[in-house]
């Protein structure tokens, strides 16, 4: 059984169901990527896993425990981290304060985790007294990921981490995400930029209209002619 499992996810934001019974699973130490065309429900599926929308049916399990009924805050306490696509930093607060907020539910000493995050993103250490809103797009993403890491998550979910940053910066960002996965975290990424993400994915899902269309290792999906033709531009 996988570490994080979403089964038969069905639901939406009150209107028609965006998710129509899709299933997603993520393993620790692995990177799982969800790709698909616009409006396929990729981000919605991730929000469903984090409890940010009401499911009409389906279950979410974390480490074997049914967490379907838990609110997002409770899931954060269980060790789930979420990095939204936009508005993912506290703009008026300094980099360090952003990271401290990531550890808000922790009562123990956070200085070790803080050093770990600064070790992962050295650029942030120099800018720790600067408001996060003044940073470049790439550094802001680093703050956003760092904030989520401060809670020492067992699952880290990233909604389009490469959106709005240059290819070089997003390549660098994916390298760091690989490092995080090697540290024992289950990583789940939703990506528009499918090729780059699938290249480093251990497992990939292609969603279409709220349903699973293809599932396989990242390499297999990249090699699948149908996936290439429909979703990767040939």
């Amino acid at each position: 059984m996988s570490f994080l499992v979403g089964e038969d996810l069905t639901g939406g934001y009150g209107g028609p169901d965006i998710l129509q019974g899709c299933a997603i699973a993520a393993e620790r130490r692995e990177i799982t990527v969800v790709v698909g065309p616009n409006g396929a429900g990729k981000s919605t599926a991730m929000r469903a896993l984090f409890g940010m929308l009401k499911l009409r049916s389906g279950k979410v399990r974390l480490d074997g425990e049914d967490i379907t009924a838990l609110a997002p805050q409770a899931r954060a306490r269980k060790g789930m981290g979420f990095v939204p696509q936009t508005d993912n930093v506290f703009r008026s607060m300094t980099v360090q304060e952003n990271l401290e907020m990531g550890a808000f539910v922790r009562d123990d000493d956070i200085s070790d985790t803080l050093e770990e995050v600064y070790g992962l993103f050295p650029a942030l250490k120099d800018k720790r007294r600067q408001p996060a809103g003044e940073l470049s797009g790439g550094q802001r993403q680093q703050v956003a990921i760092g904030r989520a890491l401060m809670n020492r998550p067992r699952v880290l979910m990233l909604d389009e981490p490469s959106a709005g940053v240059s290819p070089i910066v997003s390549h660098e960002l994916f390298e760091r995400i690989l490092d995080i996965a090697r540290g024992g975290v289950a990583i789940l990424i939703v990506e528009q930029n499918a090729r780059q993400a699938l290249e480093l994915a251990d497992k990939g899902y292609v969603l279409v209209q709220g349903r699973n269309r293809f599932t396989g290792t990242g390499a297999a999906l990249l090699g699948n002619p149908e996936v290439r033709k429909s979703f990767l531009g040939g």
Partner: peptide, 8 residues
């Protein structure tokens, strides 16, 4: 939203 995600 982000504050809620952080457990505030």
């Amino acid at each position: 939203d982000l504050a809620l995600l952080s457990g505030v």
